[in-house]
């Protein structure tokens, strides 16, 4: 399907707007030693577009990337070197989970779940995070399925 490709990267003007919005975050994150360069911000937008296209999703805004920055810039596991690459990994994990949980978890809640796992359970390991979140997805689906079957049984 071409639609995600068309919509997610529709206009160069939008890309510029998105980059500027990301750069505005530097005002808050610089105290933690995290500063995005315009190239870094562009790379986040590029990664976002590629992830959305490959996962077959459409996002008309940049709120998810902004939300991830907002929630993770205080993390002790993130530094200037890995800042952009970790954010890109988070974007991929986030949209992957949206698909796998069939949009049943809100954006804010999902970011909180990823943060909780990353900070507390996984000690900042992205590999461990991915593995733990697979288990989370499995459990989530099982519960959703049970709830659905339970409702069906009552009918």
């Amino acid at each position: 399907m071409f639609l995600p490709m068309v919509l997610n990267s529709l206009n160069p003007l939008l890309k510029e707007t998105f980059v500027n919005e990301l750069l505005k975050c530097n005002e808050r994150t610089k105290d933690y030693g995290l500063v995005l360069t315009p190239e870094g911000a562009e790379s986040i937008i590029e990664a976002r577009n590629n992830i959305l296209n490959s996962l077959g999703r459409v996002d008309m805004g940049i709120e998810v990337a902004l939300g991830l920055i907002e929630n993770f810039y205080t993390s002790t596991f993130i530094n200037e070197e890995n800042y952009v690459s970790v954010l890109n990994e988070f974007q991929e994990i986030f949209y992957y989970m949206k698909n796998e949980t069939e949009d049943m978890i809100s954006d804010d809640k999902l970011i909180c779940i990823i943060k909780d796992y990353y900070e507390n359970l996984c000690g900042g390991s992205l590999e461990l995070l991915k593995s733990c979140l697979e288990e989370f997805i499995h459990d989530f689906r099982r519960k959703a399925h049970t709830a659905e079957a339970g409702l069906g049984g009552e009918e």
Partner: peptide, 28 residues
Amino acid sequence: QIQIMQILKELIARYTKGESSSVCAYTA
């Protein structure tokens, strides 16, 4: 096109009741 995309963005927010800024391609 940009104006139509803006409407799409607003409707996606309405569709997800403000809980998600993205949807699967089929829904979009």
